[in-house]
Amino acid sequence: MNSQEQTAPLLEVRNLSKHFGAVRALNDFSMVVRPGEVVALAGDNGAGKTTLIKAISGVFQPTGGEILLRGQPVSFSTPQEAREKGIETIYQDLALADNLSIGANIFLGREPMRKAFGFLPVLDRKAMAVAAKQTMGRLDFHVSRLDAPVSNFSGGQRQAVAIGRAVYWDAQILIMDEPTAALGVPEQRKVISLIHQLKAQGRGVIFISHNLQDIFAVSDRIVVLRRGVQAGERKISETNHDEVVKLMVGG
């Protein structure tokens, strides 16, 4: 690692380990994510990508090592704590409630209330719709029917809703687990352009994908994991598909 980027890291992982009994799923792993940077995590199945993101997002407690957020050591006992600190994970299976509107999904679990007739607390659907419209607008997705359930929208749009939720709650680090895996080609392209926008807004993105084409289209750096250890780290501008594949399979 060199220090040619002047910006302080948003997220830093130092010597992180996670052992399940005798299995060393993750061993002495380090990486940094800077503001406005997209870091791709690559590796074969079982290389430890999922363990790593679960340790960062508070699902697992790491066995050793530390996580620093803007230079401050943090530890999360639940995913909610990680989310409150601005680390949001966007899961492959989207984690949306299909029967609810975009606004309701953005606010799921933290719904705004208002007082009807001055005393009766009711859900503030208008505020949710307004926030949904603004947030989706920031991602350049313009939806007209804000009361429609998200099941009415396409895969890419739903991915945008999941990302929009993270953006609305001001996540600084977005961990995206295979965000393009279940999508058709035009939709994949939309998601890639969404990631570009997140980057332009100065957020850090950890992008997990099997698709090297997507990784090369959007990432600044690539970190390759193999059997729980870091097998290599390259700047995208200084590497190519062949080298990454070699790192992944250990050639």
Partner: peptide
């Protein structure tokens, strides 16, 4: 009109999503 009702719909559609939403 309440969070209880809203969460009830969310749980029926996708328990995992509801749980991840806290």
């Amino acid at each position: 009109q309440t969070r209880f009702g809203q969460h009830n719909y969310a749980i029926g559609a996708n328990v995992q999503a509801a749980s991840r939403a806290g």
